[in-house]
Each structure stands twice: as structure tokens, then as C-alpha cells.
């Protein structure tokens, strides 16, 4: 971990210059930086995976000790799943039958999103700040694709997407999951949902000072599903013709063997 000595060095420098700086004026321009690290960049999970916690360590450098003592620094760590275009559909009654009528497609939405923060994200910064950087369950960027009419039902479809993702366990939050373990070192725990999608996830950490967004750090994390089930799934998508032929051969063999085993004569 390279960041720890750097952080200590930075703290030392601050301690030396602090008396002079304090006499002038409090530093308002951001000099804080953040480093994060995880023990692995790849997680292998099997089909019986029931969810797990992922721990991320990090340090703030160049912080203001006064502000830190007052708890003015906030950290939000998000684990964003692979992104895909998602379509939300709404059923309506047509001639007595429930039919998918309206739909809206959102561009490149994370399939999973696990959030961990020093306190409730909504209290860390204003809605405008959170929206602009797309942090928080209610602030993830959800940009519709294509014609959306007058846009009057945009918020309704956005809310439904978030709600369905939350009830499905794909979107989660833990407003106490980031804890300082020393003055500038912190530990964040994010949850990997049981049905975590396969693919490249991104660990994204955001540093706030008194409601102002200061800096961001991101690390990739590959989630690789292993085992027989994943092999079958991979085959179905990457070699669909052989997979289909195999399914037919398996069916022919099963039926044929049964007819021999159960032959009456």
C-alpha cells in the first residue's frame, strides 16, 4: 500500500505549515486527495453464492485536521455493476387483460449498485451535487433513449426502475458502511448481492468536504462466475449452434435409452 506513507508524509507537512497557514486564512481551495485499495481485482464466485461483503481501504491525504475533527469529511463508496440498457415496461388493462403498454429505455444503467457511506448520502450533499456526479440510489444517472413524449412520466419510470432494482436486491445501501479507523484511514464495506452480475464492476469512492464534492477514485473489480452452470451459460451464448445440437442429441439419447431399458420383451 503506497498511500499510507504518502498520507503520513502529507500529514507531517501539514503539521509543519499549519501554524503559519492558520494565521493567514483557512484553506478553501481543495488540496485533499484520496487513495483506495482492495485486496484483489478479481472475485470468483460459484452458483451457490449467497452474497458477501467486500472491504475497501482508503486514506485521505492533504486533509484539514480541524475539519476532520469536526467530522466535515464524508466518504461514499459505490460498487457499480456492469452497465446495460434497461427497459422499464408498464402494464395497463386492455379489454380486461393486463398488457405491457408503455415502456422507456434507459441508457447504460448499472445492473447492480451497492452503496456504502459515512452517513446517509442525502445528508452528505445537496441533491444538485449528488445528481451532477450520479452518486446515491436516487441520483444514479437514468437517461432515457428515444422518444419519450412530453416526458411527463419520466420520473414515474425512473422511480419504478429504482424500486424494482431495490426490491430485487440489486441496489443496496448501507449508510454507516464507511468508518474511519484512524484520523485519515477509512474502511468501507460494500455488499455483493447474491445474484451479482457477471462482468466488470467498478469500485468508485467519492470524497466530500462539508457538502462539497472534492475528488473521486475508481478501481475495476472483475466478478467471474465459475462452475458447471457458468460453463453451460457461456456455451449457450458463445457457441449457440453446438449448444443447440447438444441439447437435441441429449434428448434423443435420453428417449432412446429409456425405450431400451423399459423394453418389455
Amino acid at each position: 500500500m503506497k498511500s499510507l506513507p504518502a498520507a503520513l508524509a502529507a500529514a507531517l507537512v501539514w503539521a509543519l505549515v499549519l501554524p503559519a497557514a492558520a494565521q493567514d486564512k483557512p484553506p478553501s481551495t481543495a488540496t485533499e486527495k484520496m487513495e483506495i485499495g482492495i485486496s484483489t481485482d478479481e472475485i470468483a464466485i460459484t452458483s451457490d453464492f449467497r452474497g458477501a461483503d467486500l472491504t475497501i481501504f482508503g486514506a485521505i491525504e492533504g486533509y484539514d485536521p480541524n475539519l476532520l475533527a469536526q467530522g466535515k469529511y464524508d466518504i461514499v463508496v459505490a460498487l457499480e455493476g456492469p452497465k446495460d440498457n434497461l427497459t422499464v415496461r408498464r402494464k395497463e388493462r386492455v379489454l380486461g387483460v393486463w398488457v405491457n403498454r408503455r415502456s422507456m429505455t434507459f441508457e447504460l444503467v448499472p445492473e447492480s449498485y451497492s452503496l456504502s457511506s459515512t452517513r446517509d448520502v442525502e445528508k452528505i450533499a445537496s441533491d444538485e451535487v449528488l445528481n451532477s456526479i450520479g452518486v446515491g440510489l436516487h441520483h444514479i444517472r437514468l437517461d432515457p433513449i428515444g422518444y419519450i413524449g412530453d416526458g411527463s412520466n419520466l420520473s414515474e419510470f425512473r422511480e419504478s426502475l429504482r424500486r424494482l432494482k431495490e426490491t430485487g436486491g440489486f441496489y443496496q445501501r448501507d449508510p454507516g458502511g464507511v468508518q474511519f479507523i484512524s484520523a485519515s484511514l477509512f474502511k468501507a464495506t460494500v455488499k455483493l448481492p447474491a445474484n451479482v452480475p457477471n462482468g466488470t464492476h467498478v469500485v468508485r469512492a467519492h470524497l466530500f468536504r462539508d457538502g462539497v464534492f472534492i475528488s473521486e477514485k475508481a478501481l475495476p473489480l472483475r466478478v467471474v462466475k465459475t462452475g458447471l452452470e457458468q460453463m453451460i451459460s457461456n456455451a449457450a451464448y458463445s457457441h449457440p449452434l453446438s449448444y443447440g445440437v447438444l441439447a437435441v442429441v441429449l434428448a434423443l439419447l435420453t428417449g432412446w435409452i429409456a425405450s431400451i431399458v423399459f423394453r418389455k420383451d
Binding site: 415496461r89 408498464r90 393486463w98 426502475l161
Partner: peptide
């Protein structure tokens, strides 16, 4: 088909 579903919204990925 006729009963009011518990959830009238659904999400599908590409």
C-alpha cells in the same frame, strides 16, 4: 391474465 398484478412495472435488460 385478468387479475390485477401485484407489480405492473417490469425491467428487462437488453
Amino acid at each position: 391474465l385478468v387479475l390485477t398484478p401485484e407489480e405492473i412495472y417490469s425491467v428487462v435488460s437488453e
